[in-house]
Design a protein around this nucleic acid. Structure first.
Length: 453
RNA sequence: GUGGUUGUAGCUCAGUUGGUUAGAGUGCCUGAUUGUGGUUCAGGAAGUCGCCGGUUCGAACCCGGUCUCCCACCCCA
């Protein structure tokens, strides 16, 4: 039988040690910031009941869910006529579980399910993979990690402020130049009301979200196509033409939505958030962007999106406030707000810009060459001592040829190689080779410690 | 889901109008050097030409299907 060619499913990837070291650098950096702001970790299962996931991400979202086939003789339980039933109807009859699509909905489920154990406001972070069945392309995978921070059970806009600070910290620590775009769904709703098309709210937001990508004309075409009247489109025009500083945009916006209570509330919320930053230091740019809409329709208040300034890859972080996500699961009046960092896209940006710190790649600092049994017995306690001193060390596991052992150290980027043979065992010194300069010196153990620390 | 594109050695890629035995660079292995990697030199191994079928005396090359990669749309981290 011919060996089958090994491969992984479309849109999924293996990660080599070098890649994992870099990925862990991103995860660790993000995690440390989360912890510094008082967030605690949780995890939820990779799969959820489809009833938990369906209908939370819009029509498109449902299509992008990976569904898991029921176990056993699932076909025998199908009630519909197989030759007539539609695929998506059948899917629900033979599948009751699916892979999670994001971390926010499982979190809402978690909160409702564990409400009696939770003290509110509940601040949690969660770093796990999610799955989406769309076609892979640049910066888009079928399996990728999200790093979510959310606070639930508090309406305070201080939480929005805190999330912006977290984003600021993360990208500062990662040394990624980024910009936060901020908007508020209430403003978008107010605008929809103003132009007399409140029921077309979703269509309007999706269309204006594309403004910077496809331009005003195409957006207007799309709006017409969705059945929005020309006069309404005409009224939208001044919103697209808003410019200047955040302050200027807000004051002209106030006039536009002056007759919409919701709209004014949204403007006020943004003003409040921005006012906090009059006295807080913020390194990242924070920009009010009226064309930011975000597709997920559970957002009700503030919405955020972060873009890398020096790379073209879509958003690397996004989120917002959701007033009633727990309501779906039976817990009313619990508002939450959170953001999600796209670790894989951040990786792509950092890789493209070549800004991973050099020193994270070297894992082993010292390697002992293995000359044979006698020497092993002599070296092993030394390796142990180095490890006790916190130095990452290893001994080559067999007395292979020098060339092989040196090549191993070289390929693994090990900076120091130690040679201990008859001479060294007699003198009690260690021959230490600096793999960068090629220089060798005979040192006492303590001198070695000093040299490498 | 729609449209386009790619696939040849572990990796990056050549390969003429369809014509003997499919090449290069790099990596790998061996030796020059039995206690010295990264540089140099000599030698060596390595390919169902993505897969299935068709056309042809003959296919890496032409045709059809399929999978995969990448890109755009939809949507999104």
């Amino acid at each position: 039988m011919a060996a089958q060619k090994p491969s992984v499913p479309k849109g999924t990837r293996d990660f080599s040690p070098v890649e994992m070291v870099k990925r862990n650098f991103i995860f660790d950096t993000i995690k440390n910031v989360f912890k510094r702001f008082g967030y605690l970790p949780i995890e939820t299962p990779s799969m959820e009941n489809l009833s938990t996931l369906m209908g939370k991400y819009g029509e498109e979202g449902d299509k992008l869910l990976f569904k898991i086939l029921n176990s056993g003789d699932y076909l025998s339980k199908v009630k519909s006529n197989l030759s007539e039933v539609e695929s998506n109807k059948l899917a629900l009859e033979i599948s009751e579980k699916g892979l999670r699509y994001d971390l926010t909905v499982p979190f809402a489920r978690f909160v409702v399910q564990h409400r009696s154990e939770i003290t509110f406001p509940f601040k949690r972070y969660q770093i796990q993979p999610v799955w989406r069945a769309d076609r892979p392309q640049k910066g888009r995978y079928r399996e990728f990690y999200q790093c979510d921070v959310d606070v639930i059970g508090s309406n305070s806009l201080l939480n929005e402020v805190e999330l912006i600070q977290i984003i600021d910290h993360v990208f500062q620590d990662l040394k990624v130049n980024a910009i936060i775009k901020l908007n508020n769904r209430k403003i978008l709703l107010g605008i929809a009301e103003m132009i007399g098309e409140p029921e077309k709210f979703i269509d309007i937001t999706v269309a204006i979200d594309k403004l910077d990508k496809i331009g005003l004309e195409k957006v207007n075409e799309e709006l017409l196509l969705k059945g929005i009247s020309e006069s309404a489109i005409e009224k939208l025009k001044p919103i697209f033409e808003l410019s200047g500083s955040n302050k200027e945009k807000l004051s002209s916006l106030k006039k536009i939505v002056k007759d919409s209570e919701t709209g004014l509330k949204g403007v006020e919320e943004i003003e409040t958030v921005l006012n906090y930053f009059k006295t807080l230091k913020l390194n990242i740019d924070l920009e009010l962007d009226l064309t930011l809409a975000r597709g997920l329709n559970y957002y009700t208040g503030a919405i955020f999106e972060v873009k890398a300034k020096d790379a073209e890859i879509g958003s690397i972080c996004g989120g917002g406030r959701y007033d009633d996500l727990t309501g779906i699961f039976g817990l009313k009046d619990v508002s939450g707000v959170g953001v999600s960092f796209g670790a894989d896209r951040i990786y792509d940006v950092m890789e493209q810009l070549n800004i991973f710190p050099q020193e994270i790649v070297a894992s082993t600092k010292v390697m002992f060459v293995n000359f044979g049994e006698k020497e092993e017995i002599y070296c092993l306690p030394l390796v142990q001592k180095l490890r006790e001193e916190g130095v990452n060390s290893e001994i080559f596991p067999e007395s292979a040829k020098m060339k092989k052992q040196m090549t191993y150290a070289n390929n693994k980027n090990i900076p120091y190689v130690i040679l201990v043979g008859d001479n060294e065992m007699q003198s009690g010194l260690l021959t230490v080779k600096d793999m960068v300069t090629g220089e060798q010196s005979e040192l006492k153990f303590e001198e070695l410690l000093q040299k490498i620390s």
